[in-house]
Design a binder for these strands. Structure first.
Ligand SMILES: [Zn+2]
Ligand SMILES: [Zn+2]
Ligand SMILES: [Zn+2]
Ligand SMILES: [Zn+2]
Lengths: 160, 160
DNA sequence: TCAGTGGTGTTATGAGATAACATCACATGC
DNA sequence: GCATGTGATGTTATCTCATAACACCACTGA
């Protein structure tokens, strides 16, 4: 984050009620699909939702235990892999961080706007990759998943 | 790479003459710009050009010495940072690898098509990010650089 | 009851990247 | 020539990110 600006305030995390609701929805949906929404998976998703911005894996590991005890790395990485597979979270490769999915859509390749100053991110919807799809078709590639991450400044940091 | 297919042949590395020419061009251009194209930087660029596909940083480190001696990590990472800053190489975040720029354009945000089977990559030109630019403007973000990486299968691996 | 499957706990290690500091090369101005 | 500033390198150590491997457990269906 910020080399140049020092105000780390963006829209901020969702309320506890928002987190609860999202967790409940996710649990219900996955259970209905026959998936097992276990305690570790719920906990990691809860941490991601509560953060409201990208979180480093080792921060999740540190915050994992409600009593302050950290988790073992594989516990969190396994949960992240599951959540990502199920479309509930995304890995942001350019900053090696993870974020809860903010889109209602189930199966999607997300694109992100990332503020290098305050860390705010915005998940934007699909059509951003239409040009990429065209290029892939032209080159004869069959695309499975895409990583689209734009770095810059968010409106708040631009205004400051 | 490949879980599913086992033919690691794509267009393959450029000839030694191609590499030499590209190195000479890069050297001339940067020298003209007042930059110092040092031995380490040339060597790393040579390794990237010769590979003709993304290379892991620690592979560059291992191959660095012409006598088989590895480099120290900072040597290679500094060279990579310089080459990337000058538009001669790109980092591919989704696979933590580096590749020589295959575009003539000087200052550009590249997009990549990456074959998960054989490792081939294709650098495709700018307009793929037009949708992203539109989304960024709509959200009020000022974009500085983008990471666009599409994973899938190349034509050769699809045919097999 | 007994496999088979998928999830977890735990230890250890592999892979990717950088901090910090001393030293060196080179250009500029005296 | 010689001081001085700047950018590049050498070197050591360390930090961050991620996974391998294996034992154990819970649930399911024969
Ligand atoms: Zn999403
Ligand atoms: Zn911001
Ligand atoms: Zn390029
Ligand atoms: Zn291929």
């Amino acid at each position: 984050m910020g080399e140049a600006c020092h105000h780390h305030h963006h829209d901020g995390p969702p309320t506890a009620a928002d987190v609860e609701r999202a967790l409940g929805d996710a649990d219900a949906r996955l259970t209905a699909e026959g998936e097992r929404m276990t305690a570790a998976r719920l906990r990691v998703l809860e941490l991601l939702l509560a953060a409201g911005e990208p979180v480093k894996a080792y921060d999740l590991i540190a915050r994992f235990g409600t009593d302050g005890q950290p988790a073992k790395p594989p516990t969190v990485y396994r949960a992240l892999e599951f959540l990502e597979r199920k479309g509930l979270a995304h890995r942001i490769a350019s900053i090696s961080a993870y974020v809860a999915c903010s889109s209602g859509t189930i199966d999607h390749s997300a694109a992100f706007l990332i503020c290098d100053c305050c860390g705010a991110t915005e998940e934007v919807a699909a059509p951003v990759a239409e040009g990429l799809d065209r290029a892939a078709r032209a080159a004869g590639y069959a695309i499975v998943r895409t990583t689209v991450e734009a770095h810059g400044r968010c409106p708040a940091c631009l205004a400051a």
